[in-house]
């Protein structure tokens, strides 16, 4: 994070949403720039070079996916998509295009802040490229150097795929991963359509790591979109 204030560019045509975020985000230490259309948004993104972009998918002039594509041509700045409900395909498309996460309208400030923090943390980490050797979350502890997994200090044996799935989620902790992204990372680019592989292994992983697999604490399903390792 550069400097003291994190800069955020909000591309949103709804004035009430802009007003509400304008009132809220500065209180949490963000400096907010606003754009009403996709074109303005792209210009603003180039001139302000923000740390994070909040992008509404229902803009009047440009498709959200078009904005993401153009932004991704020159920067890896995290993008969080604001989308309406029941648009799982649109969300997945945005994520696959390079958006980092999404929040569904209507959303609460706490939810948005959590997503923003996760995205910024991940961006910061890839920029510094220093992975901590040990990841811990609640009673889950993963020693990435030694490839060991512990739950409540008890070592758990994982198969290679399970382990790879877990470490992939850890790498993007807090961020949603689409099925496609996970399949590509864990099984390779030839298996991106085999959604049920992912579901079966995710169930095995939950059975090994979660106290109540039917009501998971860490490995959360975002139906229709993908999975998220819940960090807070």
């Amino acid at each position: 994070m550069s400097g003291q204030e994190v800069t955020v560019l909000l591309i949103e045509d709804e004035p009430e949403i802009r007003r509400f975020l304008r009132a809220t985000l500065p209180a949490h230490g963000f400096r907010l720039y606003e754009a009403v259309t996709g074109k303005d948004g792209l210009t603003e993104a180039q001139s302000r070079n923000p740390d994070l972009i909040l992008l509404d998918l229902g803009l009047p002039d440009l498709e959200g996916s078009e904005v993401i594509r153009q932004v991704r041509e020159w920067t890896a700045t995290p993008i969080i998509v604001l989308s309406a409900r029941d648009q799982e395909q649109v969300k997945v498309a945005a994520l696959d295009l390079g958006a980092d996460d999404y929040v569904t309208k209507p959303f609460g400030v706490d939810e948005l802040l959590a997503r923003m923090r996760a995205a910024l943390r991940h961006a910061f980490r890839s920029a510094t490229a220093v992975d901590e050797p040990v990841f811990s979350l609640g009673d889950l502890k993963v020693d990435l150097g030694r490839r060991q997994v512990f739950v409540s200090a008890k070592e758990i044996h994982l198969t290679p795929i399970e382990y790879k799935l877990l470490t992939t989620l850890i790498r993007y902790a807090g961020k949603v991963m689409t099925h496609r992204q996970l399949l590509k990372e864990v099984w390779g680019p030839l298996h991106v359509e085999e959604g049920h592989y992912l579901r079966v292994y995710m169930r095995q992983l939950r059975n090994k790591l979660e106290k109540n697999p039917a009501h998971p604490r860490y490995l959360v399903t975002e139906l229709g979109v993908g999975y998220r390792l819940k960090t807070e």
Binding site: G195, A214, P216, T221
Partner: peptide, 27 residues
Amino acid sequence: EWHPVDEVVGAALSRLEGRLRDHTFNT
């Protein structure tokens, strides 16, 4: 798509999170 139903149940419970505090859930 092929889904384990328990995963669907889990997703539903996660989504309802805030409203489940008054009851205990046995799965």
